[in-house]
Amino acid sequence: MISVMGVSHDLGGSTVLHDIDLEIPKGKVTALIGPNGAGKSTLLSLIARLARHRTGRIMVDELEVGVCASNTLARRLAILPQSSEIAPRLTIEELVAFGRYPHHLGRPGKHDREKIAEAMTLFDLDPLTQRTLDTVSGGQRQRALLAMIFAQDTDYMLLDEPLNNLDIAASRSLMALLQRLAREHARTVVIVLHDINYACAYADHIVTMKGGKIGPQGDAETLVDGKLMHEVFETDAVVHRIGGRTFVAV
C-alpha cells in the first residue's frame, strides 16, 4: 500500500499540494483524475522521489520515500513521467534493457535477458529491436518506455498520462494489460488519466483531485455522476450508465 500522510508541496512560491492524506490500495488499478493543474503529476512525482517533499511522509509498504535507499525503492516502484525526453539515439532494445538496471547494476544475467525478451514481446516491440528512438513513431516510443517500466518488474507502477500519443487500439490494449497485471500478478498500478471514460472503464479505484487537494474517491459506479463532474471538473457533462458501465458524454 502507498500511504501519503500530511504532504504539502510548493512550486515556484505557490502551494500546489495542500496537506494531502491518501491511501492507494495494493493490487489494484487506481486512476488519478482531475482538471489541469490539480496537482496529480506533482503527487505522482513526489511518491516516486522525482521531487523532494518538504512536509509529511510517504510510505511504499514498509519503505519510506526519501529515507530508504533509492536503489531499493527502484526495485519496488517504477514511474513513467509525462513526456520523458530520453536519449534519442538509443535503440529500443537498449532502452528496454535499462529497466533491469536496478536489479543487476550493469551486469545483466540470464534472468534479466529473459525479462527483457518478455517485455519486448508483451509490448509488441520485437520487429523494432534495433531501431533508434528518434526513428519510431510517438506511439512506438511510448510502448518502448512502458516496456522498460514493465521490465523493471516492480510491485508498484506509476504512470503519468501514458495514453498520450497512443491511438484507441493501443490505449485499450494497454489499459487491459494494466488491468491484467493487477488481477493476475498482484501489481499495483497508479495512473494519471485525462480521459475520464478510460478511468471509468478500467480503474478499480478512482481518486479525484482539485486545486491541490484530494476530492471524493471510490469506484466508477458509485463515484462518477453529474454532480461530481460539476464539482471537480466544473462542467455539466451528462453521465450515462449502460449495461452496468459508466460513460461520460463529451
Partner: peptide, 8 residues
C-alpha cells in the same frame, strides 16, 4: 527522471 526511476 529516468535515472532516479532506475535508482541512481
Amino acid at each position: 527522471e529516468a535515472a532516479i526511476n532506475l535508482g541512481e
